[in-house]
């Protein structure tokens, strides 16, 4: 039933979306091109979308830079540890909360309790003091534990669980299955799309967050990759350069090095994304709409 208008609309839609995606890709391509260009070409602003005076020297520099790999290691630690904890707690919370109030009395209270934390936040300084008093500062746990329960993901998962047919777990119940069996044998296998989605959310969250690393870590060796990268890309305040900093001036124009590090920094997510993406749309739509 393709009317003319529909056809035009589709074409327009495609063109619009293609332009939109190009808009997202260009910066990345530009960074990639910069990272393969010579430093003098980069500082003269000659590099657009293709490397000028191709060289691998930035990557050689990064390869030899211990801090970069150290913080990469911290980031991997954080993502794996944090991802696992997120996953476990999300599933274990979502299951009881997806029951009826009859089955699980404190359900309403707990749900509201979780919801409140999404709206209200203690503020930066109290948050810092709590973590400090818990002796977590400067440990990997400071990056993992404060984010242990991603409430948004829990809500997604609750909604997904609730739309699964109740008859199934009634049947399982009659056959003698307990809650653990129902959760692991029925709910989890049925929820793969949404689980992939929330895993992706939590991985990306852990990989991308930089601010907590900055505030909670006491020495740069313990920074996760994004905190480290932030220190690399931030522009120096040029009105404040003192006479004693003359030596450091020559380093300002190292845009190629910055680009190489930025690109390597987003590589892992670029690799993970396509594999989880097929579940992505399905998971979030089903989880979200049928509330």
């Amino acid at each position: 039933m393709e009317t003319k208008g529909y056809k035009y609309f589709t074409w327009f839609n495609y063109i619009f979306l293609i332009l939109l995606s190009l808009l997202c890709i260009f910066p990345l391509v530009h960074v990639l091109a910069l990272s393969f260009s010579s430093s003098s070409a980069a500082s003269a602003g000659l590099v657009k979308l293709w490397p000028v005076e191709f060289t691998l020297s930035s990557y050689q520099y990064v390869a030899a830079k211990a801090e970069f790999w150290q913080s990469m290691f911290v980031s991997f630690q954080r993502v794996i540890l944090g991802g696992l904890i997120n996953f476990l707690l999300t599933v274990l919370l979502a299951y009881p909360l997806s029951r009826e109030t009859k089955q699980f009395k404190p359900r309403t209270f707990l749900a509201w309790f979780l919801f409140m934390t999404m709206i209200f936040h203690g503020g930066l300084i109290p948050w810092y003091i709590v973590i400090k008093e818990l002796q977590l500062l400067d440990t990997i746990w400071a990056l993992v534990l404060p984010n242990a329960v991603p409430v948004f993901n829990v809500i997604l998962l609750i909604n997904f669980f609730r739309q699964l047919p109740k008859e199934m777990d009634e049947a399982a119940h009659v056959d003698g299955a307990g809650h653990w069996t129902i959760l692991w044998k029925i709910y989890i296998p049925l929820s793969l799309p949404v689980l992939a989605t929330i895993t992706l959310f939590s991985l990306v969250m852990h990989w991308n967050s930089w601010f907590d690393g900055l505030i909670l870590m006491n020495s740069p060796e313990n920074y996760p990759l994004q905190s480290f990268l932030q220190t690399v890309v931030i522009q120096r305040d040029l009105s404040m350069i003192g006479s004693s900093d003359l030596e450091s001036l020559s380093e300002i124009s190292d845009r190629t090095l910055k680009s190489a590090q930025i690109f390597l920094g987003c590589l892992p997510i670029l690799i993970v994304y396509p594999f989880l993406q097929k579940y992505f749309v399905k998971g979030i739509v089903i989880g979200g709409v049928k509330g």
């Binding site: 505030i215 006491n218 740069p220 905190s227 932030q230 931030i234 120096r236 305040d237």
Partner: peptide
Amino acid sequence: YEWIAPVGDQFDQK
């Protein structure tokens, strides 16, 4: 040193 941070924004925030 109680803590060490990179010069600039990061140091100021910390």
